[in-house]
Design a protein around this nucleic acid. Structure first.
Lengths: 205, 205, 205, 205
DNA sequence: CATGAATGAGTGTTCATTCAT
DNA sequence: TATGAATGAACACTCATTCAT
C-alpha cells in the first residue's frame, strides 16, 4: 500500500528542478559571492548532491550566465517603457527611475549578482553582458541628454558623469536594502526617482 | 664584510618589502577580486615565492585587513575636515563630496576593494570595518541632516535614502573610472560634488 | 490498432538494437579507447539515452566482453582451416597468414580493441580471453614448428620469438590501416602472408 | 640530539623527487594504462599526497609528455648510429634491428607507453610525437629501401608494408617481454634482428 | 630572510549505475 | 522499452598554510 503522502514525496524527489537550481544559485551567489560560493553550497541549498546539479547545468559559469539571461530582458523592457512615454523628458526620467528602482528592489538578489559578478563570465557571454550594460548606460544617458536639451537640467551638468553617478546609486541598492526592512519598495522607488531627477536638474530654475 | 651602506640599504629594502606586499595585494585584489586571487598571484606580483610571503603576513585575510586599516584613517580625516569647515551646511556637504570623490579617485584600487570585499573579513576585523562604514554613513547622514535643518534641502527629502544613494554613487566610481581616461580627477570630483549637492537640495530654491 | 507488419518491424528493431549497441561500442571503443570512452559516448552513438543502454547490457565491462566473444570464434575457425589444409607446412603458414591478415583488415576496429583492451577485463572473463590468446599463440607456434621440422625454416630460428614477432606485426595492423587507404585488403593480406613466411624461412637456401 | 639516521630520513622526505615522479609514472602508466591510471596512483607509488605531485608536474598530460621527451632522443640516436655504419645495407638493417630491439627491452615500460599512449597527447605535443614517429618510420623505410636497391631484398617486397610489419613486431615487444623471463635481452635482440632481416630479404635467392 | 617541498582540505566536474515513472 | 533524475565515488587540479633547510 502506498499512501498519498508517499506518492507526493516521490513526486518531489524526482521532479524537474531546473527552476529550483536557478533560484538556489541566486540566493547562494548573492550571499557568498560567486567566487566564494561552491557548487556544493548550491547543491545543499537545492537539497541534492553536487554531482546531481550537472543534470541541470553545464558548469558553474553556465549557472551564472543563466541568472543574467533572465535579467537582461527585463532591463530592456523597462527602458523601452520609459522611453516611450508621452511626457516631458524630466518626467520620463523620473518614471524610468521609479520603475527601475522598483524592479531592482523586487529582484534584489539577482540584481546584486548582475551588478558585481559579471566579471566572472568569459568569452562570448561576457561580451554579451558588457554590451547590454553599455546599451543600458547609453539609453540612460540619452534620457538625461533630452532633459538637458529641454533646458531643464543643471546648466553645467556633464551627461556622462550624471549617468555614472545614477548608475552607481542604483547598483548600490542591493548592498543595503533588506526586504524585511520597514520601508515598502514603492516608497524607496519614489524617493530614488526623485533623487535621480534632483541629480540632473539640481537647483536649476 | 658588510658595509654600513649595505646594511642601510637592506634595512630600506626590508621596510619597503612589507609595503611592496601591500601594494601588490591591492593591485591583485582589485584586478581579480579577493576570492579569486591567490596568494600565489600576490607573490608573483611582488616577485617572490609564495612561501616567502608569510614572513610579511599572517594569512590572506590579514592582507585584506591591512588594506582596510590603511584606508580607514583617511576616511575619518576627510569627514573631520569637512565637518569642521566654517561654512553653510550645503557648502560643507559640497566640500566633503569633492574631497571624498577626489580621494576615491586617487586611491581607486584600494577603494574598490574597500567597497566590495569587506564581506570577506571575519570576526573582530569584520565588526570593525562594519562599524567604520556605519560611522561614515551616519556622519554623511549628519551633514545631509544639517542641510535639511537649514531649510536648504528638497522639502520631502528622506535623509537615509539620500545617504544610501550618495554612498552608492561614490562606491560606483572605481567601477568605471580609468586613470588613463581623458578627465582629470579634479574635474570629476567637482562634478560629483555638485551632483551630490543636487541630490540633496533638488529643485529647491 | 497495430498491424502484424508493425509488430514484426518492432521485433526486428528490438533484435537489431542489441546489435546496434555492440557495433556502436566497437566504433566508440576503437576511436577513444575503452578506458577513455564513456557509456554516454556509446549511448550517443546508438541514439539513445545512457540510462536506456542498461536494458541491453549489464555493465561497461560486459559490453567489452561481448566484443571479444564475437571475435574469439572467428580466430579459432581460421586456425582450424589453416591447420587442416593438405599442403606443405610453409604453405599452410602462408595460408594462415593471409586469411588472418585479411580477417584483421575486415574487422579492423574489433581487432584493434581485442589487441589492446583485453587488460580491462577482470575475473573469469579475463582468464578466458587470456586462454584464447594463448591457444592462438600456441597454434601459431605449432605451425611454425612444423615448418622448422620440415627443414624449411631458417636454421637458428627460435619458434617462440618468431611467434611473438609475427603476433606483434599482426596486432600492429589496426594501428596504421585506414579503410580508406588506396590498398585493397587482399593486397595487404598477400604481402603480410609473404612477410610472415619470410620471417620464418629467412635467407634459407 | 639528532641521529644520523634521522637526518638521512629528513633528507629523504624533502629531497627533489622529479626523477622519482617520472619513474613512478612510467611504472604506473605501463601497468594500468594512462587513461585508467590516476594521479593518485602515481602519488602513492612515489609516497606523497596527490596534491604534492603538482610541484613537479603541470598536469597529468604533462607527465605523459615528459616520458616521451626522454624517449624521443634515444630513438634518433639509434637511427643515426645504424645509418652511419660503413657496411652493406642488409647489415646496417640488422644492426639497427638489434640495437633498437635491445633498447626497447632495456626500456620496456617506457617504450610500451610510447607505443600505445601517444594518442592521449593533445595539441602541439601530439603533433611533435606524431612527427617523431613518422620520421622514425621513414628512416626505417629508407634502410629497407637501400636493401632493396642493393638487390638483396625479396623481389616483390613492398617497402611500406615491410616497414609497418617490422614496426608492429617491435611495438609488440613490451606486451610479452618480462624482464624476469629466462631469456637475456641480448639473445632476444639478436633473434629479432635476424627476423627483421628475414622479413626483408625473405627466401631471396 | 628566502626557498621550495609537502600537506590536507577543498574545488569543479565526470561517470557508471540505479530506478521510479 | 525508454526516460531522465539521482546517486556516490572518483577524478584532475588548486590553494592557503607550514616548516626544514
Amino acid at each position: 500500500m502506498v499512501t498519498t503522502a508517499e506518492v507526493r514525496e516521490r513526486g518531489r524527489q524526482r521532479r524537474n528542478r531546473s527552476q529550483d537550481v536557478l533560484e538556489a544559485a541566486i540566493r547562494v551567489f548573492h550571499k557568498k559571492g560567486y567566487a566564494s560560493a561552491s557548487i556544493q553550497d548550491v547543491a545543499e541549498e537545492v537539497g541534492v548532491l553536487k554531482g546531481s546539479l550537472y543534470h541541470y547545468i553545464d558548469s558553474k559559469e553556465d549557472l551564472l550566465a543563466r541568472i543574467f539571461e533572465d535579467s537582461a530582458g527585463h532591463f530592456m523592457e523597462m527602458l523601452d517603457e520609459a522611453s516611450g512615454l508621452d511626457e516631458r523628458p524630466v518626467e520620463r526620467l523620473r518614471s524610468f527611475g521609479r520603475s527601475c528602482s522598483f524592479w531592482y528592489l523586487r529582484n534584489i538578489e539577482r540584481v546584486g549578482i548582475y551588478a558585481t559578478e559579471w566579471k566572472h563570465l568569459t568569452g562570448k557571454r561576457r561580451r554579451e553582458v558588457v554590451q547590454i550594460r553599455e546599451t543600458y548606460e547609453s539609453r540612460l544617458a540619452g534620457l538625461i541628454g533630452e532633459v538637458k536639451e529641454a533646458g531643464e537640467a543643471a546648466p553645467d551638468l556633464d551627461v556622462n558623469f550624471a549617468t555614472y553617478f545614477i548608475f552607481g546609486a542604483l547598483d548600490g541598492l542591493p548592498d543595503w536594502y533588506r526586504r524585511r526592512g520597514p520601508d515598502p519598495a514603492e516608497k524607496i522607488a519614489d524617493a530614488y526617482a526623485d533623487q535621480i531627477v534632483n541629480t540632473v536638474i539640481g537647483g536649476a530654475r
